[in-house]
Simulated assay, not measured.
Amino acid sequence: MLRGFNTAASGMIANQRMQETLSNNIANADTPGYKADQGTMRAFPELLLQQMGGETVPTSNGGLTLPVQKELGSLNTGVYMQEAVPEFSQGDLRETGNTTDLALLNGDLPDEEGFLFFNVQNPDGDVRQTRNGNFTVDGDGFLTTNQGYYVLDNNEEPIQTDGMEFNVQENGTLEVGGQQVQLGLAYSANAADMVKEGNGLYTPGEDGGPLENAREIDGVNFEVRQNSLEGSNVDPSAAMTEMMNTYRTFEMNQRALKAYDQSMQKTVNDVGKLG
């Protein structure tokens, strides 16, 4: 009986976490470069039930009892949401007319799961990656993200633009005051290894290893478009449909938990009467 409580409760918790993931996706449907999270469910290890008993075998001494085990089958112990994995696919492009807006388009890549990122510097001075090209220029003339993180060049140095007027070629080269500066672009051979850090930043996971300079890898093609932004890859309609299905599953587990509770209450009351 108590195992049934745990199974139903684990289903409710897993679906609650899935709802939170879907809600976050919908909330970021208009965030440039946002990649939707895909929740993955996994079952807890199953229990193998066996009946243990004994069988008496006649012998000259009167009999011998031998242990006997009979397999009854497996018992599921519930589910949990294992992780939320970003879905790395290209979002739709839209023109903004702002010179500081940059959209990164993946071209032909040597790896099926490969993906490209802008290099930026987080508040601790570490290099991180982003797909959100909604940049601006700070008071010191440096190109930054909306959170104030420096956008880095090919040498992982902040980019000085001295204002909002600059041109960016399709190969990611900035023309500033007669000089050319290359945008720092990172390449991940397996984007599924990238981990979200918040504020649109990514970092390689434990299995991802250091990222490579996209300009130094054969077969990597890309395009940078100025005055444009890459939208999120969230499908609001699909996300809403999945939220409704998740809510129905939550309700089913809730009803099962209520049924267990009523059975337990009836058992306790009946046992009390027998006493």
Rank of each mutant, 00 (worst) to 15 (best):
V168C: 08
P45N: 02
Q38W: 06
I217K: 04
T145M: 09
N171K: 05
T65H: 10
G141E: 12
E223I: 12
Q129L: 15
T96N: 06
N221M: 10
T136F: 03
E87Y: 12
G141P: 09
T56A: 15
M41F: 15
P204F: 02
M41P: 02
M81A: 10
L75Y: 07
Q90W: 06
P58S: 09
L174H: 01
D124R: 10
S60Q: 11
R17S: 05
E216T: 05
T31W: 04
N98S: 13
L257G: 01
M41L: 15
A29V: 11
A214N: 04
Q50T: 13
E55S: 14
N28F: 07
V168W: 06
T241V: 14
Q182N: 06
L72G: 03
G200A: 03
Y187W: 08
T267S: 15
Y260D: 03
E242F: 03
F166E: 08
D235H: 05
E113Q: 14
L102S: 02
Q226S: 14
G133S: 04
A192E: 15
V127L: 10
N106R: 10
V268S: 12
V168H: 04
S232L: 06
N15W: 00
P204R: 03
F166V: 07
E46C: 03
A43H: 07
G125L: 04
A239D: 03
V268K: 12
D101W: 00
E206Y: 09
I159K: 03
A8P: 05
Q50D: 15
V57G: 06
A14Y: 00
D261F: 02
E157P: 01
G148Y: 10
L257Y: 12
Q82D: 14
N61T: 13
E230R: 11
M252P: 00
K258T: 15
Q254K: 03
G54R: 10
S232E: 03
